[in-house]
Amino acid sequence: MNISVTKTGLSALCLSLVLAGCSSTPVEETMSDIEDTTVQTVEVEMEAEATAVEEAPVEPTMSAATVFYFDFDKALLKTESRAALVEHAAFLMDNPRSIRLEGHADERGTREYNMALGESRGNAVKEFLVLQGVSPSMIEVISYGEEQAASFGSSDAAWSMNRRVELK
């Protein structure tokens, strides 16, 4: 099995290119059954930058939340995460692609235990998507434990932003 590794340093560059590509992607195939004014605003703004938009690769996207939050030391999916995940599941079945679920923990507790906790959270989201009909083979769960905080600082507010699963 071959593993290709870019020279350290290049990976950051690659990541930023991918992100830039995503942000200039036009929102064309949004889910037809949801009305979302935010999406329409984005479309208008993007049309203003016509040339950039037209040159960008066309990929189906959707607008539901991609970050799902958890309680301290828990890997139970919150009720408020469900609606967005139902949308994702429907969209993924119409537009199949491989996704990554990146699980994270706040800084409290030990690092390797938090790796396990991040994975449990990722698995909770995966199980929900699979129950909605998404093929498990399209979903990869990667835990980052407490290694990649979304919000810095040692406050309840920062911690609650860090206990999360990101759908990518």
């Binding site: 350290t8 340093g9 990976s11 390797e112 434990g145 290694e147 990649q148």
Partner: peptide, 10 residues
């Protein structure tokens, strides 16, 4: 010993 843009642990 090692430098990376991705996490190093343990």
């Amino acid at each position: 010993v090692l430098e990376s843009t991705q996490p190093i642990m343990s």
